[in-house]
Design a protein around this nucleic acid. Sequence first.
DNA 1: CTTAGTGCAAAACCTTTGCAACTCT
DNA 2: AGAGTTGCAAAGGTTTTGCACTAAG
Lengths: 144, 144
Amino acid sequence: MIDIAFFEGLLREKQYKMTVQRKTVLEIFVDFSERHLSAEDVYGILRERASGIGLATVYRTLELLAELELLEKLDLGDGRNRYEMKPLKRSVRHHHLICMSCGKIREVDSAAIQRALNAIEHESGYSIIDHQVKLYGYCHECRK
Amino acid sequence: MIDIAFFEGLLREKQYKMTVQRKTVLEIFVDFSERHLSAEDVYGILRERASGIGLATVYRTLELLAELELLEKLDLGDGRNRYEMKPLKRSVRHHHLICMSCGKIREVDSAAIQRALNAIEHESGYSIIDHQVKLYGYCHECRK
DNA sequence: CTTAGTGCAAAACCTTTGCAACTCT
DNA sequence: AGAGTTGCAAAGGTTTTGCACTAAG
């Protein structure tokens, strides 16, 4: 998936150093690629693995990995930042459907949203770099 | 705009009381209807007016006004909640274009986005109650 | 060796809460 | 009178920062 040599290359470009801590945190995101992990989540997993990595390092590493575009920072509205692996190329960004009852997060792709956003970019005169679309509602199971 | 009798009606429905504090906070949103105010912003304005209203009351009032659907709670990604007046009826929700350089926030309506979201609701089996669309980029002035 | 990175604890923020005093209805 | 409301200060939760120590290039 993410190979270490590629990661080292990204780091070297900006004079950053490869450390065990950084490698370990990135590996967690590979192992839990389907989840949206907060700093505290990552720290919890690290403690289970008795890694000795501190919480401050987790925060600093997450910020770094997002800057390198290996992770994507998400704000899912629960008062803490979350991160997920960022696929290297994806033509259509995916969005998050959040169940207000059970908290489950489902991802959706939508070419239609993408088109609507492109239209706004055109009309508004802004150049749009990034966007976040969050949909809140009730999932199938919680709806009865 | 918002008339006080209407506000009192909403309060009475849920056994809430009309207080000077609540009236004052709501008036601020009428006065600054074009802005997206945080709790601290509101508190600052109140202090200028030497109102004696405490910060905790501001937080409680903002939450109350959002519950009554007079205000809308926004998460614009700057680490604090913001609020804006919620128009009584608007068929198409508006979204926020945030300039990453000067911080300016522009609002956009988009029927196309609305349609895309309706389609997702249909396909996903979720019932969508609310949504937030945030677009980050550079505004016309900051683009040269 | 030199510079960047780490861990810890403390600090910084934003927001919520406990409680006695107060104020609408 | 009685229930809801307020202000203050304290506590909570997440994220950042200062600093001495350690490790990577």
